[in-house]
Simulated assay, not measured.
Amino acid sequence: MKPVLREQILTILAAIPPGRVTTYGRIAAMTEGGTPRLVARALRELPDDHGLPWFRVITASRRLADHPGAHEQRQRLVAEGVLFDARGRVAPEVLWP
């Protein structure tokens, strides 16, 4: 991945406000040449001590992606006031931007 694209993704990630979520695709659309898969890759490659709100990124279906950190992700989102419906989706009103 080009360093410029990675920097764009991480800058957007840092801007997601608490209590809001965005999708891999929305982040990709805000970059120059990014795709949802590249966004996911950039998040997977974050170092352990990064401090960025990776947990605020969800799938286009407004669900959590299936990954080892999904339980922690859900806990962090709930702690910020993000609610999930019976199908595991977040309300469209919390989508950012």
Rank of each mutant, 00 (worst) to 15 (best):
P3Y: 10
V4D: 14
V4M: 05
L5R: 12
R6V: 15
R6H: 00
E7H: 13
Q8E: 15
I9M: 12
L10Q: 09
T11R: 15
T11E: 12
I12L: 15
A14L: 02
A15P: 07
I16W: 05
I16C: 05
R20V: 05
V21D: 04
T22A: 10
T22S: 14
Y24T: 12
G25S: 15
I27E: 01
A28Q: 04
A29Q: 14
T31E: 04
T31Q: 01
E32L: 13
G34R: 01
G34M: 10
P36M: 03
L38W: 02
L38S: 13
V39A: 01
V39K: 01
A40L: 10
R41W: 14
R41F: 14
A42N: 03
R44D: 08
E45R: 12
E45P: 02
E45N: 10
E45F: 00
P47T: 00
P47V: 04
P47D: 05
D48G: 02
G51P: 09
L52R: 04
P53L: 05
W54C: 02
W54L: 07
F55P: 05
R56A: 04
V57F: 03
I58R: 01
T59W: 00
A60R: 15
S61Y: 07
R63E: 09
A65T: 09
A65D: 12
D66Y: 11
D66T: 14
H67S: 13
H67F: 11
G69R: 11
Q73M: 11
Q73S: 13
R74M: 14
Q75M: 13
Q75V: 10
A79M: 10
E80H: 06
E80P: 06
G81Y: 07
V82P: 06
V82Y: 06
V82E: 06
V82L: 07
F84R: 02
F84N: 09
D85A: 06
D85Q: 05
A86Q: 11
A86C: 05
G88N: 09
G88W: 10
R89A: 09
A91S: 15
A91M: 03
A91N: 11
A91C: 09
E93A: 14
E93G: 06
V94S: 01
V94W: 03
L95Q: 09
W96N: 07
